[in-house]
Amino acid sequence: MLKAIFFPAFLAVAVLSIPATANDVDGFRLGMSMQQASQLALEKGYKFSNPIKSGQNWTSYVLFKDGPNVSFCGNVLSSVGRSSDSNLHEFANSLAQWTASLGEPELEASQKYASGSPLSTIGYKWLGQDNVRRQISFWQYGSQSPQMSLSYGYIKHPCNEGAR
């Protein structure tokens, strides 16, 4: 009986866990060209949103049909992330795994208001010696379902010089 209850829960955690040392989400890997990312998106059935420009060479996209968000510096995939419905149990488990693998993170917490509703965020980031920033966040907007976000991005790159 206990096996029947705990095995599906264990399987869900194993499938949802993303290794802390990774630098890709759903196959979208830092350093890919725009052409490689477009081909992968086509294979997975994702559609690119309209480009969101922020800076001379920085362009971001949301991949529709439940894909990740991707940002390019010129033609190079330089940041990738995903948010999904979550809960405190999953977040605490993922944070513990990442901390065990990467060491102590930097903590960031904030609460802002958008359209009269609170947007509360607690996030942890690691600045790796491999030039990759890894971040895990838990956030909630108003009374919507809590979300967990995982993201990877280059620390030093022409489009984000000075960013941490």
Score class of each variant (00 low, 15 high):
V13Q: 08
A14H: 07
A14G: 04
L16S: 09
I18H: 10
A20P: 13
A20H: 03
A22V: 06
N23Q: 15
V25C: 04
V25Q: 09
L30N: 04
L30P: 04
G31M: 10
S33R: 01
M34T: 05
Q36K: 10
Q36D: 13
A37W: 02
A37R: 05
Q39S: 12
Q39G: 01
L40I: 07
A41F: 08
E43L: 08
Y46N: 00
K47R: 13
F48A: 12
F48L: 10
S49W: 06
P51G: 03
I52D: 09
I52Q: 15
S54T: 09
G55S: 02
Q56N: 13
N57M: 11
N57R: 11
N57P: 00
W58M: 13
T59N: 05
S60M: 12
V62A: 13
L63D: 00
K65I: 07
D66E: 14
D66P: 00
D66G: 08
D66F: 11
D66W: 03
G67I: 04
G67S: 06
P68C: 05
N69T: 11
N69K: 11
V70R: 02
S71H: 04
C73Y: 02
G74S: 04
V76N: 09
S78Y: 00
S79C: 02
S79M: 14
S79F: 08
V80S: 02
R82L: 14
S84Y: 13
H89R: 07
E90N: 10
E90D: 11
F91S: 01
A92T: 14
N93L: 15
S94V: 05
A96H: 08
A96C: 05
Q97D: 12
Q97Y: 08
T99V: 09
T99N: 07
A100K: 15
S101T: 11
S101L: 06
S101I: 02
L102A: 03
L102Y: 07
L102E: 06
E104Y: 08
E104R: 13
P105L: 09
P105Y: 02
L107A: 12
L107G: 00
L107D: 09
L107N: 10
Q111Y: 04
Y113Q: 11
G116N: 07
S117E: 15
P118Y: 03
T121F: 02
G123L: 03
Y124C: 01
K125T: 10
K125E: 11
L127S: 11
Q129A: 15
Q129K: 14
I136G: 03
I136N: 04
F138I: 06
W139L: 05
W139R: 06
Q140R: 12
G142M: 05
S143I: 10
Q144A: 11
S145V: 11
P146K: 03
Q147Y: 03
Q147M: 14
M148L: 10
M148Q: 13
S149F: 01
S149H: 05
